[in-house]
């Protein structure tokens, strides 16, 4: 296990978090501490519960048991306004980007400011100049300055994912949760997206939790690797400890080989 520095740095804490879907257990009694500024990979085979785990942190799914703590306060049972405020601090990036295809790129990024502004003005399409500046600054950083007036659906997958990252950035989040952000992308775009996430993590100190199914990506980009299998944490260590044997066990490859 990793040893953390000062206790105050443990910003995100999962305590015995469990999620059942009917009779299946998606996440099974997971307890974790994530320190501020870490870039953590969550790896494991499909169906291991990686997505459910991330969605429970953001509140898109509710734990059946256990709780999620952020800086000491429980965020797993939040409702209404408090839930929206928490989600603003805990940005989410999806495998399929989850942009609004028919809206232009800059408006998609402005969605990241919704939780910070009154509902009436934002519904009327009015955003403060500061919000717009932040949106273009984020897009500029991600190399999408030329595309900001285009409809999001006209962009390539890699570009769309970078728009989604820009949307996350303008939320000014404490954490970014990325659920398989590169699973639909080619190697070059995978690289640019991982690089963007790593840069955000390094330069702004934002904690990043990223679900990956590619072990090599976890090794290359992250400070810490958590391995899930059948909803349980079976590995939690530095990437260097992720040996061939550990991977084989995590993915159950020994059984495949035997068949």
């Amino acid at each position: 296990m990793l040893v953390f520095g000062r206790a105050g740095l443990r910003m995100l804490k999962l305590e015995h978090v469990t999620r059942l879907y009917g009779a299946t257990t998606a996440v099974d009694d997971v307890s974790l501490d994530v320190a501020r500024g870490q870039m953590v990979a969550v790896i494991g085979p499909s169906g291991a519960g990686k997505s459910t785990l991330l969605r429970m942190i953001n509140g898109l799914a509710r734990p059946t048991g256990g709780r999620v703590l952020f800086e000491g306060s429980d965020v797993s049972g939040l409702q209404g306004k408090a839930l929206r405020a928490w989600r603003a601090r805990c940005a989410m990036i999806f495998q399929q980007f989850n942009l609004v295809g028919r809206l232009d790129v800059v408006t998609n990024v402005l969605m990241g400011r919704l939780a910070h502004r009154p509902i009436v003005t934002t519904l009327a399409g009015w955003f403060a100049e500061e919000d717009r500046l932040m949106a273009v600054a984020a897009l500029d950083r991600l190399g999408l300055g030329a595309q900001l007036a285009q409809r999001a659906e006209t962009l390539s997958g890699g570009q769309q994912q970078r728009v989604a990252i820009a949307r996350a950035l303008v939320q000014e989040p404490d954490i970014i949760l990325a659920d398989e952000p590169v699973a639909s992308l080619d190697p070059a775009n995978t690289r640019s997206v991982m690089q963007a996430l790593r840069a955000i993590n390094r330069d702004q100190g934002i904690t990043v939790l990223v679900n990956l199914h590619d072990v090599d990506l976890a090794r290359e980009w992250c400070d810490r690797v958590i391995g899930l299998r059948a909803g349980r944490v079976v590995f939690d260590d530095a990437p260097t400890a992720l040996t061939g044997a550990a991977t084989t066990e995590l993915y159950g490859l020994e059984r495949l080989a035997a068949e």
């Binding site: 303008v170 000014e172 702004q204």
Partner: peptide, 18 residues
Amino acid sequence: MSRGLRADAMARRAEFSA
């Protein structure tokens, strides 16, 4: 720390507006 983007956006306001 996450104020980075906002500070940057405001500092380069003229440039971005142009």
